[in-house]
Design a protein around this nucleic acid. Structure first.
Lengths: 109, 109
DNA sequence: CGGCGGTATTCAGCGTTACTATGTACCGGT
DNA sequence: ACCGGTACATAGTAACGCTGAATACCGCCG
């Protein structure tokens, strides 16, 4: 993917994970896999786990430990009310940014 | 703007400045003003200058010192061939990201 | 003439984030 | 008994934008 994508993901990855959790609860490994399927093949597992810890600390998600049939127990994350609120703000910021960027891209030609 | 925007700008601000320089050469103070007019009112001056230094070090811009009528001499930055190439990559990365984000935003409803 | 405001650049220190690399642990199949 | 897939965790690093302050040059107003 390259360094540009790495830097661009800062602040955005968090929103992507929240958006995934908005659809339905999920656990770390599952989220990483989901992101990879969506084309973000280089996302490191450690990155996602660290992010989930932050989300929990900030009170955006609720956590539940669920035993797994294959491997150690899963930590299932569920987006809560605060998380939804924060996600809404994320989309506001994102839309703002995307709009201006689009303008710049047009204006360049 | 809030912290979300700050994090989101990482990696993106660089591309925005390159895009501005693609239109025409400019100096730091001018670029900051331009960004503010475009709605990014909280961009710190120091941020832009630091970014320009990095762009110069990486060889994406050529620099020329031009005396100013009002204040110290301006450092005018011009996008060069390497810079244009890098900017093209930036748009590729951006488009990729924007597409996936849009998908997520849709899928959420 | 002395200070104030606008122009213009620079820098040290900080916080946040994603990546690297590694380690731990649980399980089923061969 | 081992190996590979599942699942989580963490210490250290690099990059980037912000804060806050300093420096410098100029015209204008009192």
């Amino acid at each position: 993917m390259g360094k540009q994508m790495t830097e661009m993901l800062k602040g955005v990855l968090e929103g992507m994970v929240l958006a995934l959790l908005a659809v339905r609860p999920a656990y770390g490994y599952e989220i990483t896999a989901s992101l990879r399927e969506r084309g973000f093949t280089d996302i490191a597992e450690g990155t996602v786990y660290a992010l989930l810890v932050r989300l929990e600390q900030r009170g955006f998600v609720d956590v539940e430990k669920v035993p797994s049939e294959k491997g150690p127990p899963r930590k299932v994350y569920t987006l809560n009310a605060r998380g939804r609120e924060y996600l809404a703000e994320f989309w506001t910021s994102w839309s703002f940014l995307a709009e201006r960027l689009e303008q710049l891209h047009e204006g360049e030609r």
